[in-house]
Every structure is written in structure tokens, then in C-alpha cells.
Amino acid sequence: MNDDDFVFPAVRGHGLPHLISKGVDPKYYLAEHCGKSTGSCGGVSTYHNIDTEHGFFGLAGTLGTGFPISVGYGMTSKWNGKQQVVVSCFGDGTSNRGTLHESFLMAANWKLPIVWVCENNQLSMYVPVKDHHPVENIADLAFGYGMPGEVVDGQDVVAVAKAVDKAVARARAGEGPSLIECKTERFVTHSIGLPDRIDLEDRTKDDYVELKKRDPVVLFQEKLLKEGVLTQKEMERIDQEIAVEIDAAEAFADAGSPPDPSVLDDYLYAK
């Protein structure tokens, strides 16, 4: 993807994986989440983020909003001659929304350059996917709209990258949208402070042991070490660099101040 390609992030991590991977400095989002005027949205939003130069035009708190918004990005991409594409991400829970169907329909009908990426972590808060979706693969929804639908191992970052790359190329060539479903996991609670539960039952220690066998970081690390792409020394260097980045990001967020109340008027209407 290019810098100006559009991304609508999924809800988990409030889009951190997408922002970080597309080159946005996460310190602005940290400051935003700390209510500071130095944050990505000036500190008025808590959880929204925006970085138009990297194709992020905003986030929304009502799940399923991203589908229609992505259709709009797709229309712009198709019309403005800049050969842009859209990557629109959502979870298995969000796939329940009616806006998914309306937007899949519009995007397929108008052959919009959109790659729909379902990050299926198999849990919609406490509800397991088998209890909220009637068939095994959400990717099957694609066929009703004449799109390719593909399932990939969502714990294999390379498999995801390859599948999305192929769909992006297809979209950019004017061949329309596709759907990629990534089977992934959620290692922790839905929302910090809430119990980590499936249906009525809290997850157990054994559950976590099983889950960690599918840790995408560990799996990729082991693979790269085995391939000789990564060395123990390089791993430590990366960890150290990230520790420094985290310290700097926290210092940046902590140094900021809450916005001046006058921004309430400044932000409401454009001149």
C-alpha cells in the first residue's frame, strides 16, 4: 500500500496495529488517549485517531460505521485518478452489522477498490463466534456479492500480508473488492477491567496455555530465528529500541496538557 491508500482500522487495540504498521507515530495516539492537546485529535476524543497523510481519516465508536465510510473512500479512490485503494478492517462481532451487507453490496455493485479484512478472533465480547454467526467462515459472505472470499491463518503475519497484497493488486487493477478472513485470537479480556469470559465461564489457566501456543509474535520469531533472518542479538536490539521508543512516547504524552475549552467551538464547525 502507498501512504495515501485509505485504511479503516478494526476495533481491537483501537487501530494500533494498523497505525503502527502504516508508519504513524503511536505517541500521538497515546497522548490522545491521555486527553492531551498534543494528541492526534487534539485531546478531545479519548479513542479516536486520525492521520490523513497516512490514509487514516478517522475512527468511530459505533462498530460497523467503518463499512459505509470505507465505501466512501472507495468512491474517492475510484474517481480521483490517484489509483488509491482501501483496506477496511473489522472483527467477527462487527460483521454482524447490517451496514456490512449494505456496504458489501455497494462496493461490489460499483466495483470499488476495497479489501475487506475480517479479523476473526472468535469472540464478540463474551459471545463465541459459533453463537453469533451461522456458518464456519465469515469469508463465505463474499460469494453472495460476487467477490473473492479467502480464509487465512490470522496468526501467520506473512500469510495475511500475502493475501492482502494480492487483493490490493486486484483492487488497484479495477477488478473490485475482495474479502479476507483472518482466523485470529484474543489473549486477554474484551475490555480492560472486565472479566475474560466465554459465554458464562471465565477463561482458565489451561485456556491461556493453549492460546499462547498460537502467539503470532512468538510463532514469527521462531520462524525467523530458524530461517536465520533474525538473530538473538538483533532481537535484543529491537526490544531495546522499542523500550526507548515507549519511554519517549510516555514522556511526550505526560508532558502535554488538556486542551483549552475554546477548542470546543473551534472544532464544531469549519469556517
Binding site: 500500500m1 485504511v7 482500522p9 478494526a10 476495533v11 481491537r12 487495540g13 483501537h14 487501530g15 494500533l16 496495529p17 494498523h18 503502527i20 504498521s21 502504516k22 488517549h33 479513542y47 483496506v87 478492517c89 479489501v115 479484512v117 479479523e119 478472533n121 490470522g154 496468526q155 501467520d156 503475519v157 506473512v158 500469510a159 495475511v160 500480508a161 493475501a163 492482502v164 479476507i180 483472518c182 485470529t184 485470537e185 484474543r186 489473549f187 486477554v188 479480556t189 474484551h190 475490555s191 480492560i192 477491567g193 492460546l211 498460537r214 502467539d215 503470532p216 509474535v217 514469527f220
Partner: peptide, 16 residues
């Protein structure tokens, strides 16, 4: 609030 991505990072990272 914070809805952690832990365990489910690869789709977003791989896609973007």
C-alpha cells in the same frame, strides 16, 4: 477504555 489487541495483532500488522 481500552480494548486490547493482544493475541490478534497479526491481521492488522499483516494488512498494513
Amino acid at each position: 477504555f481500552w480494548h486490547p489487541a493482544e493475541g490478534g495483532e497479526a491481521p492488522g500488522v499483516g494488512a498494513c
